[in-house]
Structures are given as structure tokens and as C-alpha cells.
Write a protein that binds this DNA or RNA. Structure first.
Lengths: 220, 220
DNA sequence: TGTACATCAGTGAACGCGCGTTCACTGATGTAC
DNA sequence: TGTACATCAGTGAACGCGCGTTCACTGATGTAC
């Protein structure tokens, strides 16, 4: 019995040693770096315009080192979109916790967000491109869209009856306004688009809030 | 004098004949066909994913025939975006004239529009891509964005005070909702996004309308 | 402790491919006389 | 009317280039003994 355990132990140690030649976590760190660079480049330059060689060299590696980490460009797209959206949801949680929905709206439609698509919302930067991706990729961000909607919904005043619908409309307005503002960036119109978007999103909340207690059973 | 006129006449006829060897309008018809195919393909597949050879062959021509018509792909992009948006503005005018702003909102966020990006709004299909184009191209669609806003603004009830801002918010909401609905197309969520977008856009109007006469001077 | 060995993240050249663009050529047409 | 000629939209092969991907190799490291 003891002998068997001894050998089993040895075998396990052997397997571990087989898996770890370079310092622990090195491969993971490289992969994280690649995903980070890709997530930024996809958002600022577009997916099709971002080549693997360029992403790898910005990550401090050569193009050949890509394939030990990812099976294909599509896999990188999937992982970096997921990471970008997860990070965004994390930041959203934080801002909702400290400043509520109003702070989130203003941060989303800020000039800073408009002028830095590479660090910003992947949906605003890539939605039409995403809609053209294969099913695997579409599932990855569709899940995150649902998550974001739920977070916004939960942050709305509890008096509002159909909070999911209001949350969805707010998301639509924010994404549309940010894209329009970016599309005409550099003009005075751009700032006005941001401002009217903020106002519209805020009113969606105050209007639903004001209406609900007065006509609690109205169904049209 | 008469002699001079005679020769001038001849010269003009000569210039005309120099310019027209094939049947009149043939070149223009080809060009229109190329622009039409490109406008559809850009919207459904994306700009970067649409190659010139493919566009030309769908238009019934070979790739070499592209350059008598356009100086570069960028020129085609500019012309086809302009054409697509001008067509859209024409259809918008028509629908506003017959059904008003409400009909326009419902047509924009219809399932048919969602499921046919190739024939639909070029802004919803391409905004992030457009924002990355060179200045010449950006001017082309920025002008159209202004035009569309003005059309929507003019179709709003005259009681509304800041009609331009409301029109801008409506556009943002419509574009964002259509993109989100397309991104999650095939799910039940997609239909709900369209519905909540319609409702939100309609409420932007009714709310602004209701508020304006009651508190005509309120400024916050 | 020193040496031989195994591992594997990363290198960098090469693959086939489709891109935007160029160019010598074709052939349908209109004009000249 | 018939023939020679000029025009030019369109053909189709070729250009250089960068793409995603493959692969034989390198060299820094950990293990065995």
C-alpha cells in the first residue's frame, strides 16, 4: 500500500514537472498580454484591420508565438471580446455601487469615453462587426449583453415596473449616442449628441418612475 | 462671322462625338450598378470584408473595369455611403409625409429592417467603421447625419421646444436598438429590444410634448 | 555539486491566398468621307 | 452605301503586399542522478 502511494506520488510530481519548464505563470502572462493588446486594437482599429503580426509585436512577441496560445484568430476575437466586456461589467458594477445609474450614464457618454474607443465599451466600438461573426463568438457577447442589461435594470429605482425594458432602452440610447458622437467627432454636433443622450437616458428613468405609482394597473 | 460660327459648331460636335462612342449612358449605368452592389455588400458584410473583385463580378463586370469609374476603393466607399444615405433620406421623407414620425420609428425598428441590413440604414450597419474612415469620407456621412436629424426634428410636434435635441436622441436610440437587436438576432431578446426601442422613442416625443406647455420657462 | 537530458514558449522564415491596383489589349460602336 | 479609322468601356493577367497559418528550430529552464 505504502509502496503504491509512493509511486503514485512520484508519477504526479513527474506530470507536474512535465508541465512547467519556464517560470510559473509565464505562458499565462504572455497570453494575457496578447488578449489585452488585441482587445484594445480591435476596438480602436476594427477587427478586420487588426492583423495578428501587429498585435503580437505590440505584445513584445513574434507572429509564430501566437499559435501555442490560440487555435485561430477567431479564438482570439472571442477571448478578447469576452475579457473587454467582463472588465467593463466590473467597472460598471463599481460605478453603479458608488454613483448609481446617473453616474454610469454620464461616464458612458463622457468626452473621455468618446475619445478613447480602445479602452471603452466593446459594444459601441464593434456591434455591427460582432453581428457578422460566427455563432460561437456571438454567444460570447450576447451573454454579456444580457448581464449588462441586468446590472442596469437592478440599478434602476425599484418603483419602476418594467425595469428590464427601460434598462434595454437606456443601453440602446447610450450605445447609439456614443457611436454617433464618435462618427462626427471634432464637430460641435458631437458634444450635443452626448448631452442629448444623457438627458434622454435620465428622462427614461424619471418618466417611468413618475408614471408608475399614478397608474399602477394601466395595461395598453 | 458666319464662318467662325460654322467652325465653332463643328468643333463642338467633334468634342461631343469624342466623348460618346458606346450607346449614351452606358458608362453611367455600369457605375450606378457598381455603387448599388457595393452599398449593399458594405452594409451586409462590412467594408473591409468586401473586396473589389467580388463587387465587380456581382455587378457583371471584371475587376479591371473598376478603375475607369473610380480612382480608388475609398472613392467607391464615399460614393456608395452617400448614395445609400441619400436613398434613405428619400424614403424617410416619404414615410414622414404619409405616416409621420411614429410610422418612421416603427419602420426603423421593424423586424424587416433588422433582418435586411444590406437594404437598410447605413449608419446602423457601419457607424463604427465609418468613424475610422479618412476625413473625406467622414464629411460625406456627417452631412447626411445632420440632414436626417433635421428631417426628424421637423416632423416632431411643433410644441416641443428643443426639437433638435429630441430628434438627436431619437436617432441615437433607433440606431443603438437596431444594432443590439441585430447583434442578438435569433433570440427572443432581439424582439424585445426592438419593442422597447419603439416605446422609448415614442415617449421621448410625448414627454417633451406634455412638459413644454406646462413649464415653458423652466431651465435646469 | 556538476553534467546530461527533456521540455516547450518563443523565433523567424515560409506557405498559399486574396487584396487593391496597374496595364497592354479587345472589340463594339460612332464618325469621316 | 461601304470602308477605314478613332474611341474607350471593359477584359483579364499580373504586380507587390500583408494576411492567417505552419513548421523546423532555438535556447532558457527544471529535473535526474
Amino acid at each position: 500500500m505504502i509502496i503504491i502511494l509512493y509511486y503514485k506520488c512520484k508519477a504526479i510530481r513527474k506530470v507536474e514537472s512535465v508541465r512547467m519548464r519556464y517560470e510559473k505563470g509565464r505562458k499565462e502572462a504572455s497570453k494575457r498580454r496578447i488578449v489585452e493588446v488585441a482587445a484594445e486594437r480591435f476596438r480602436s482599429e476594427g477587427i478586420a484591420a487588426s492583423g495578428i503580426a501587429g498585435i503580437m509585436s505590440t505584445a513584445g512577441l513574434t507572429n509564430g508565438a501566437f499559435y501555442p496560445h490560440f487555435g485561430s484568430k477567431e479564438e482570439l476575437i472571442r477571448e478578447s471580446i469576452a475579457t473587454a466586456l467582463d472588465d467593463q461589467i466590473g467597472r460598471l458594477d463599481q460605478i453603479l455601487a458608488t454613483g448609481g445609474i446617473d453616474a454610469a450614464i454620464q461616464a458612458y457618454l463622457s468626452r473621455e469615453h468618446r475619445d478613447n474607443p480602445g479602452q471603452g465599451c466593446a459594444l459601441a466600438a464593434l456591434l455591427p462587426d460582432l453581428a457578422r461573426q460566427p455563432p460561437d463568438t456571438r454567444e460570447v457577447y450576447a451573454d454579456r449583453v444580457r448581464l449588462m442589461t441586468r446590472r442596469v435594470s437592478a440599478a434602476l429605482p425599484p418603483e419602476i415596473r418594467d425595469r428590464d425594458a427601460v434598462a434595454t432602452s437606456i443601453l440602446s440610447t447610450l450605445i447609439g449616442a456614443l457611436q454617433l458622437a464618435r462618427a462626427v467627432a471634432g464637430t460641435e454636433l458631437s458634444d450635443r449628441i452626448l448631452a442629448s443622450g444623457v438627458k434622454a437616458a435620465q428622462e427614461m428613468i424619471s418618466v417611468s418612475q413618475a408614471r408608475t405609482p399614478k397608474t399602477p394597473r394601466k395595461r395598453v
